[in-house]
Simulated assay, not measured.
Amino acid sequence: MHGPTLDAIKAARRAVQGDLIEAPVLPLTSARWDGILPDCAGVTLKLELYQQAGSFKARGALLGLRGLDPAQRAAGVVAASGGNHALAVSWAAQQAGVDALITMPRATDPARIAGCRALGATVQLYDDMAAAFAAMNAAAEQGRVLMHPFEADHMILGSATCGLEYAEQAPQVDTFVIPIGGGGMISGMACAIKQARPESTVIGVEPVGADSMSQSFAAGAPATLERVATIADSLGAPYAMPLTYAVARAHVDRIVRISDADMLRAMGQYQDVLRLTAEPACAASLAAITGPLRDELAGRHVGIIACGSNISLDRYAALMAALEGRA
């Protein structure tokens, strides 16, 4: 068995459900979606951006913090991230009463830096993500517990609680379209969905410029990218890793790739129809079904996810200006 069992997923959900939000699902039936959505039997959206700390990452982070022993709690935790994982670990550490150190690139959206500090975390800034990861590793060598953004059992298990929740909330959905960054979300969600609803199809979505899981599927082993080039910083993992790759390979049917332009367009559609301020990763599922998957979804009940949206208005405005420039 690759990934957690259904019993383990249900137990994890019971353990943290008092502190997490059961993110709602929304059928996209408004006439305002006419001409945007594919000609399929229906589209359902899970609004995981309303989760604690603003993304699905809160699920796994809370499970990870809850699993620390007394010595680990006393030592504190460390995470390197420029995005949703940083906020999730900061929030979960605050909930658990554990000291958190977050190492981030200087170019990180200021709203994310401020959010981590507001949650009580200590934030250290570095020239780039490589330096932030080096600082994280150094802090772990000195005794802090490393909270990896995806390659961890608790992160997969947290995402699995989201997958099971979605399968139960939307029993009509037969095709789930899920974004891929490092693989923590899709591995956990797909593992849960395929156990709860074996007949379902799970399709992953990656940016063209950050397609480490697509390359891994093609190679039959975790792959490393020479460079990452995408506006979706939350999906910009430079490599796949053994644990999440194995779980994803066992449960994901296929992966499609989307361009930055696809995500920008979907961000605009979310704003126009739902007044939803989506970061690029948040719009990836919508970008896939209105882009490369559009012509093959006829007759299907499709489930997409708005996985998180921690983005400042300045950053959002800059990206939307880029969309206007492409028009």
Results as ranks from 00 to 15, higher is better:
H2F: 15
G3F: 10
T5Q: 08
A11D: 07
R13L: 12
R13G: 09
R14A: 15
Q17I: 03
L28T: 10
L28F: 08
L28Y: 04
S30Y: 00
R32T: 04
W33K: 01
G35N: 06
I36V: 15
G42C: 05
L49V: 01
Q51E: 01
G54L: 00
K57E: 00
K57F: 06
L65V: 15
R66W: 10
D69Y: 13
D69M: 14
V78N: 02
H85D: 00
V89N: 00
V98I: 15
V98S: 06
D99C: 07
L101P: 06
I102A: 01
I102S: 00
P105I: 10
P105W: 04
R112S: 05
R112T: 09
A114I: 09
D127P: 01
M136K: 09
M136N: 11
A138Y: 06
A140D: 05
F150G: 05
H154F: 15
A160D: 00
L164E: 08
A167G: 12
Q172K: 08
V173M: 01
F176W: 15
I178N: 01
M185F: 15
S187H: 02
S187E: 03
A190P: 14
C191R: 14
A192C: 09
I193T: 11
R197V: 14
P198I: 01
T201R: 14
G204N: 08
A210T: 06
A210V: 09
D211Q: 13
A219C: 12
A221V: 15
L225I: 07
A229V: 06
T230A: 04
I231M: 09
L235M: 15
G236Y: 07
P238S: 12
A240L: 11
T244Y: 02
V247M: 06
R249V: 12
H251L: 10
H251M: 11
R254A: 10
I255W: 09
D260M: 05
A261E: 07
L264A: 01
L264P: 02
L264R: 03
G268S: 09
Y270N: 02
D272S: 09
A278P: 02
A281Q: 08
A284T: 14
A284L: 14
A284G: 09
T290Y: 05
G291R: 10
P292L: 14
L293F: 11
R294N: 13
I304F: 03
N310V: 01
S312P: 00
E324T: 05
